[in-house]
Amino acid sequence: MSMYQNGDVDPAVRALEVRQDEIMRKLYELKAAVEGLAKTVTTPDADLDVTVSSSLSSQSSSCDIFKATKNLDALLGKDLGALRDIVINANPAQPPLTLLVLHNLLCQHYRVLSTVHVHSSVSSVPPQLLSCLGPKHADSYARHMFQLGFTLIWKNVPKLEMKFSVRNMCPIEGEANVARFLFKLLAPYPSDPAVATLVDSWVDTAFYQLADGSAKERAAVLRALDSALGRGPWLCGTEFSLADIACYCCLSQNGSTSATAANVQRWIKSCENLGHFGPAKLLLK
């Protein structure tokens, strides 16, 4: 080592480093180009939006979007010194898989007090539905220690509904709308209105056509899914979003995860690799 005591490096090593840097730079360029291309295809006017391309280049991995610490006061309004309890009334005939997935994600980011109740309008509920929010939290005897309450009530309701702040909000009806609300507690919607609308539109497609639609409609959605997934790793481009959660859950609810199209197959695998869908899958068995 005495040969290079002035801080000099072996020229060969330096050349190697330079070459590596060059390769990395080229790779980044390539990646950015591909991403830009994907963006133009999925959203025709993406090139007009500078913020999107800059956010894309910031290289967030799909899971990182949830990592940002959220200020519940900013999201849900002033803290009144008590538990913010989200009440969800769901019919045991149609367990809301999406919401269970979102609950799981919420638990990873907030201290959530989860409770399951059975309303007197329902006489019996299968045991797996009673334990669908996982084991009881060790601190559940002290409600004030939690940031967020997630109260799932199995009730004889025609439509799933959510009640949060009964003074200021009307009850929110429909699993899709509740899912949108819960997801916003985890991550902001894409700032690009086009992408945000795309997410919303996929959520609608999932609930109206995949979950409730005829076989014909489902086949059409599967084709649309396949082509969308041909353009990017997730339904709305490079980021895992509510669109993916909703479509995945509605697909599995119909037992059609053994879909044919290759892109859909790959996407299903990626979804499952994320590990967010554990609680929902337990219910399907």
């Binding site: 009144l80 010194g81 008590a82 538990l83 309890d85 409770t115 109740h117 059975v118 309303h119 007197s120 309008s121 409600r143 004030h144 009530i153 702040s165 003074r167």
Partner: peptide
């Protein structure tokens, strides 16, 4: 008469918050 099983348990501070709201 309507009820939940298990029974809903609220804490006094929560009740105060609801009333204040």
């Amino acid at each position: 008469f309507k009820f939940l099983e298990p029974t809903l348990r609220l804490e006094y501070t929560e009740a105060l918050a609801m009333l204040r709201e």
